[in-house]
Measured scan of single mutants.
Amino acid sequence: HNLTITQGKLFFHYNPKLCLSEIHKMEEVSGTKGRQERNDIALKTNGDQASCENELLKFSYIRTSFDKILLRWEPYWPPDFRDLLGFMLFYKEAPYQNVTEFDGQDACGSNSWTVVDIDPPLRSNDPKSQNHPGWLMRGLKPWTQYAIFVKTLVTFSDERRTYGAKSDIIYVQTDATNPSVPLDPISVSNSSSQIILKWKPPSDPNGNITHYLVFWERQAEDSELFELDYCLKGLKLPSRTWSPPFESEDSQKHNQSEYEDSAGECCSCPKTDSQILKELEESSFRKTFEDYLHNVVFVPRKTSSGTGAEDPRPSRKRRSLGDVGNVTVAVPTVAAFPNTSSTSVPTSPEEHRPFEKVVNKESLVISGLRHFTGYRIELQACNQDTPEERCSVAAYVSARTMPEAKADDIVGPVTHEIFENNVVHLMWQEPKEPNGLIVLYEVSYRRYGDEELHLCVSRKHFALERGCRLRGLSPGNYSVRIRATSLAGNGSWTEPTYFYVTDYLDVPSNIA
């Protein structure tokens, strides 16, 4: 807008934040220059609390790290170098490059900038070799853009010569660093050979998330399962459950009422301010606690030095998902009996873990797994792929695949051998790939016309006998059925096997 004052003059007093240069501009645009008398524009009460600059400061050096910015700028000295009290560095987070010096300023003089007072450097006698002032900004957020400017702080001049310097606002972004852990990993099994893994992005990506790394490792069953005799009275049979499938998407929606109208769909109840505040506090606490764990609990591995020492970490090797089922080394339970199943799973520490690289999504279907087997899954978020990966501390989750139908069934015939004193040795093959492992066998036998009897055969007993022995049988026709019990439950009964026990007292003698 054009402003013209045809008559009258300007009068400025007691404006401590208004620089004289701005008042002189007002004289020019209003056409009143030359009308004012000496005392109409006070030299001592206008701009006496402001830094009124008329020179431009330029930054000469900028260096960044993930949490620091090192700045240096060209030296500046007023005509009387004693008038320079120091520099004021202003900075704040700036997602967009549209910041002005006066953003967030209120009537009390406060604003949204963080201000650092910096002492002037030592003055050199040689004007050509003056030290460049600077400042190291610490405690910054990774991968965050900051708006920065600097200006001088000078003393009051009796001659009211307006001098000083100020830089333009520059924008500097800190470097990326390792992201925080992925949030809320959930693993479920939808079949006997697959596990579905879902997660949420890290709360602090500290860069642009480029991919996720998912490692999985087959877990050995508890050692007590191999040692305890679950045929003993009072000892509860062990059981394991597989990871249940995901709930429906509708039930997972946030901010939804727990109660549904019987007449149909209901609208979600909005969260109160107290609920939102509580969630923010919980989120802040979780982030602080995660940072504490990362800094205190997890110790970084030592990389190899120039002395030739090897990095103890196993090298990563990509495998196809079809090879995942046989990740671990199978060892027989008892070496003397080769027909026992290889369900003991000690994992070799030198073995390469299978892994998958996930790009542009937060889910993965891990296939080719062994049925009813526990897996430990390790999830890392990465925001750099080359020249070397920059990934987060791992988040861990466990899951067990679903049982395989008929995996616990005894394959092959049940054979028998009759000894003296009416002892019958029953023999059968253990299931080759049971659900988890076989903890015991149930032997059901009966003599024709009598009630059915049951015998429990422990895992250890089966390994020693290759089956079991029935003792003290009365003469007669017998039928026997056997079924295995694994961590997933009972298998199917075998087809009945028949044998006849004679009275050993009636056996004919070869003595003449």
Rank of each mutant, 00 (worst) to 15 (best):
P205L: 14
N206R: 03
I209D: 11
H211R: 05
L213R: 09
W216D: 00
E217L: 14
E217P: 09
R218Q: 12
E221M: 15
D222I: 10
D222C: 13
E224P: 14
E224V: 12
E227A: 07
R240L: 09
R240Q: 04
W242S: 14
W242F: 06
Q252P: 07
N255E: 07
Q256W: 09
Q256C: 10
S257P: 13
E258V: 06
E258P: 12
Y259P: 08
Y259I: 03
Y259L: 04
E260C: 05
E260T: 10
G264Y: 06
C266D: 13
P270W: 07
D273S: 11
L277D: 06
L277P: 04
E279V: 05
E281D: 07
E281R: 10
S284N: 10
F285N: 04
F285A: 14
F289P: 07
E290C: 03
E290F: 15
D291S: 06
F298G: 05
R301A: 05
S305W: 08
S305A: 10
G308L: 09
R313P: 14
S315P: 10
R319D: 04
L321E: 10
G322I: 12
D323Y: 13
G325R: 04
N326L: 15
N326W: 02
V331W: 14
P332L: 10
P332K: 05
V334C: 05
A335E: 13
F337K: 06
T340W: 14
S341I: 06
S341R: 06
T343A: 15
S344W: 13
V345L: 13
P346K: 10
P349M: 08
E356K: 14
E356D: 07
K357V: 13
K357Y: 07
K357S: 14
K357M: 12
N360S: 09
S363T: 11
I366D: 00
S367T: 07
G368W: 13
G368V: 04
L369S: 01
R370I: 14
L379H: 00
Q380H: 14
Q380K: 07
Q380I: 14
V393M: 11
V393E: 15
Y396I: 04
Y396D: 01
T401M: 01
P403M: 07
K406Q: 13
A407T: 11
D409A: 05
G412M: 14
G412I: 03
V414A: 03
V414M: 05
H416L: 09
I418A: 09
I418R: 05
F419T: 15
E420W: 04
E420N: 09
N422T: 08
N422I: 02
H425F: 15
E430R: 05
E430M: 13
G436N: 03
L440G: 06
S444N: 09
R446W: 04
R447A: 09
Y448A: 13
G449W: 03
L453N: 14
L455Q: 08
S458C: 14
K460G: 05
K460T: 09
K460H: 08
E465W: 09
L470W: 02
S474L: 08
Y478R: 00
S479E: 12
V480I: 14
V480N: 02
A484T: 10
A488L: 04
N490T: 13
W493P: 01
T497H: 08
T502I: 03
D503L: 05
Y504T: 13
D506S: 13
D506F: 13
S509M: 07
